[in-house]
């Protein structure tokens, strides 16, 4: 490749994959930019893995096309995989090898130096004593850690991770999130599928939501969070004054307690309700859950949502 590298690290145009009459992916068009952590969300069977496997050449598109790192997935699959790190969902490893042998074997086939291995093993708490044990003796979480290391050890330009925190304990999940934060800082691109909303919220710059093989929406996570409604709970001394609650919707009054959903700016709302008779105020963090659940809902509800 010559000249400036393309901004879009992954670019799909009407990507479609059908198995006979089953529409696994239908006309999927999206772009993932360089240096972005891009979440790919959808319920089980939505087509997330199909999309990833098509990008990596395991599946052949029925129609449409895609480029990864500026290369065509149908023509340059081997070169794409040279520059990519991939963690399959529910990874399987060679049970008869030790963790270290698996990592050596796979990085050798990758044809690149395992520049990040030591750091990753350290951060994911995989000491030499663990790496020297046979994979068959590993727990699911340990296998997943090895999976993460094998995907990232050669410092790929693009990491494609299929449900990467599956099987990791909360501590290791956070260690993994910090690894992804560092990758983002270094300008690496991460495309990962998940159905864990909190981790998408925590990590992603943008998110695409897929359902039944169709792209339902693409959102900027920051904007989505800013626009989301927050659950607010207020308690007054005496009877609450409902006229001074700007932006509060779905209000429910229970004695001296008011519960509602706040949209828009928090600061203006807080200024407006400031009063000596206000006894307690709780504003829950904005969550993406509500937004995503609209897309996860049955077809007719989802159509209304779009």
């Amino acid at each position: 490749m010559e000249g400036t590298p393309p901004t879009a690290v992954i670019s799909t145009r009407g990507l479609t994959k059908h198995y006979g009459s089953v529409e696994a992916l239908t006309s999927l068009t999206l772009e993932v930019n360089r240096g972005e952590i891009y979440g790919f969300l959808g319920p089980n069977g939505a087509g997330k893995s199909t999309m990833i496997r098509t990008l990596l050449g395991f599946l052949h598109a029925t129609s449409g096309g895609a480029t990864v790192l500026g290369m065509d997935i149908a023509l340059d699959s081997v070169e794409i995989r040279r520059l990519t790190g991939y963690l399959p969902g529910g990874i399987s490893l060679y049970d008869s090898l030790t963790g270290e042998q698996v990592l050596d074997y796979l990085v050798d086939l990758q044809g690149r130096e395992p520049r990040r291995r030591a750091e990753l093993c350290d951060r994911l708490e995989l000491p030499g004593s663990v790496l020297r044990r046979k994979v068959r003796d590993y727990s699911r979480g340990m296998r997943q850690k090895i999976g993460v290391v094998q995907a990232l050890q050669h410092d790929p330009e693009l990491a494609i991770l299929d449900e990467p925190t599956e099987g990791l304990d909360p501590l290791m999940q956070h260690a993994f999130y910090r690894i992804l934060d560092d990758l983002r800082r270094e300008g690496r691109t991460v495309f990962f599928s998940s159905h864990v909303l909190s981790e998408v919220e925590r990590l992603c710059d943008r998110v695409a939501i897929i359902r039944a093989g169709r792209l339902m929406a693409i959102h900027d996570v920051g904007e989505l969070l800013a626009r989301r409604r927050r659950r607010v709970m207020l308690r007054w001394r005496g009877t609450p004054d409902l006229s001074a609650l700007p932006g509060l919707e779905d209000v429910q009054v229970d004695g001296n307690r008011v519960i509602g959903m706040l949209s828009g700016e928090v600061a203006g709302f807080v200024r407006a309700i400031a009063s000596p008779s206000l006894e307690d105020l709780t504003i829950e963090p904005a969550s993406l859950e509500e937004a995503f659940l609209e897309y996860y809902a049955p077809a007719e509800d989802a159509e209304k949502a779009t």
Binding site: F58, E79, G111
Partner: peptide, 14 residues
């Protein structure tokens, strides 16, 4: 069947 084929084919091997 064991799932290791995709780990293998994730490398730059045709």
């Amino acid at each position: 069947a064991s799932g290791t084929l995709e780990v293998l084919l994730a490398r730059p091997i045709s």
